[in-house]
Amino acid sequence: MRTGHHSAAALLAAWLLAVPGTPALAEAPECYARDAQGRSFRVCFDPGTELRLAAAGGASCASGWAGSAELQLDLVWRDRLQYGEADDLVTWQLDHRFATGWIRPWELDFEGLPSLDLTAYEASYVRHSSAGYLVFPSSPPTRLLFPLDLGVDLAVGRVRAGIRPTDERSWLQLGAARAGVLFDPWRSGRPGCGLEIGLGARYDLDLLGDPRLEDGVQVVHRVSPFTAASLRFRIQDDAGLTAADVRAEVFPHWASQGGWALGAEASARVQRVVLAINDEPISIFAEAGYDRLPPALDLEAAHSVRLLAGLAIGIQLRD
């Protein structure tokens, strides 16, 4: 037994049972929460800046309703640039989408191409100003209230392949370019939110037929000279967990075969993050799409509808 010497008073003090304190939990970074065990986890996401891979199933209607399944890819990047302050604060929301669309690898239609709808680049640039106004260069200059945000909407390099519903002829459409001006009367200024009315131009090419046949492939050029009108409503919550996007476009256009025609397309999507794996969001979504394919050559106008629900894995590209 080893022993030592201390005063009793010191011993009595030393015998006090120490009560350990509870260490304070470190503050979680922005967009992260910290649980009682001190573990942090992401609780908000940016659906406008992520690589999204999805699988969806549902039904589509062309000649008739049939089951449908597809894979989806979406690489989106959102920048928000701000300058000025107070009433002069201007926010540019730049939404870029690369390699966006869906594909059905198990449906080979045009020249061995699967059914697909892919766009190489699509963007919307919306300028939100805290105080919208319009200035006339009169003398003196006149400033009037302008209750709209302005923006630009564009897309290049769209490819759509499939079977035309009416006669089941192979069909490939190349959307060379689409561009338009946007007006947003909602002026929310919040990320991913807007009510955008657009007016623009577009140029598409339809390739019909089969190159192996005698007739080969026939090409129809379609030009909308600022006659394409669109309406888009999109909204998301502050945490980026829920988002919805509805867009419709009607584009009267001139076609190289048959003259003036009317095309239309619409899409709607709502998604909700239900889970995150390693802080990457997993969302469920429902999506609907409508296309009015204008008449081409001897073909009547046709309609197709997609109704799908699926699961998407998002890889956030920014913390």
Partner: peptide, 11 residues
């Protein structure tokens, strides 16, 4: 690391 978003987010 799974985070669920049913109600209060939990890890």
């Amino acid at each position: 690391r799974l985070t669920t978003f049913f109600g209060q987010p939990r890890r």
